[in-house]
Design a binder for these strands. Structure first.
Lengths: 150, 150
DNA sequence: ACATAAAGGACTGGATTAGTCCTGATTGCC
DNA sequence: GGCAATCAGGACTAATCCAGTCCTTTATGT
């Protein structure tokens, strides 16, 4: 369905929340804040820390803080941190890969421009963009908008 | 990994192949041509037919042909036909959906611009673009060879 | 009539992912 | 110096989702 993993969704929520906090926040604290089980949030935070999107401080009174301002974090960075590289088909992943129907496939390798287009689109949207615009919590998306495009 | 289903990949291969054939082609014929098991190709074709991307003729000497030229088929159409609507997160899917952490989630509904960006990017790339040679001929098979295989 | 070919749905095996848990390392506080 | 808090990292389990297969029905040409 071309959907990304739920963990990525959590990651965005976590980062936005961190962006609104002053100092450091602990993993349990964030978990409580966004309503997601603590171990799961911890997992997400570890992944984000591994990519430098958040900085961690260990020990008592430690916790996490943003690695850089929300405005400088692109959605694509978050996706890459959690889900790995953005590559729509397995064809393009590894150089050494051998596709079974390689010799027959008429579009082998042609997904590249598509991947590129998506990467580009995703790297132009920052978390600040997502956090900013305010949809009053009450209404989610009007269904009309969805059906129209799909 | 933000990857789309393998069936979508097959769908593109199928459509491009149909675009190069003159008349109708049968499901087994296409399957042999692109090196994918026949039942799977049949499944893909059914989905494509359901969305009008291919037209079917039943009975003896029947088969499939393109519903419109490759240049007029956007990648997004294929994805929608096979994988369903493009919606990165489950938040936006159904209007009636209730997200557990709805009241807490700080980015509720904020994926919309992202979805929109991706839909836009994907609808600007046609299958003709993908079929058009972008890869050095050395790598893959020249298009001429395809008709011979059938 | 018979052979060919699509339409449609149901079922199964495998892969991927979310979520949990455990152990270890680091730091502040008493 | 010891204790408690907190991150780091990996292993494991359960659930979900998807690719692939099969069966039955309908339609059409020879």
């Amino acid at each position: 369905m071309l959907k990304l993993s739920r963990l990525t969704d959590y990651a965005v929520a976590v980062l936005v929340r961190l962006g609104m906090a002053d100092g450091v926040e602990t993993s349990p604290g964030i978990a409580a804040g966004i309503g997601v089980p603590e171990p799961t949030v911890a997992k997400v935070l570890k992944a984000l820390a591994g990519h430098g999107l958040v900085l961690s401080t260990r020990g008592a009174r430690g916790g996490y803080r943003l690695g850089k301002p929300l405005a400088h974090i692109a959605v694509s960075e978050v996706i890459v941190a959690i889900d790995g590289p953005i590559a729509l088909t397995s064809c393009v992943e590894g150089a050494g890969m051998t596709c079974e129907s390689q010799s027959l496939c008429p579009v082998a390798g042609r997904w590249d421009p598509v991947n590129e287009a998506i990467r580009s689109a995703l790297s132009h949207i920052s978390l600040a963009d997502m956090a900013a615009a305010s949809i009053p919590a009450a209404f989610r998306i009007p269904a009309t908008k969805i059906n129209e495009v799909a």
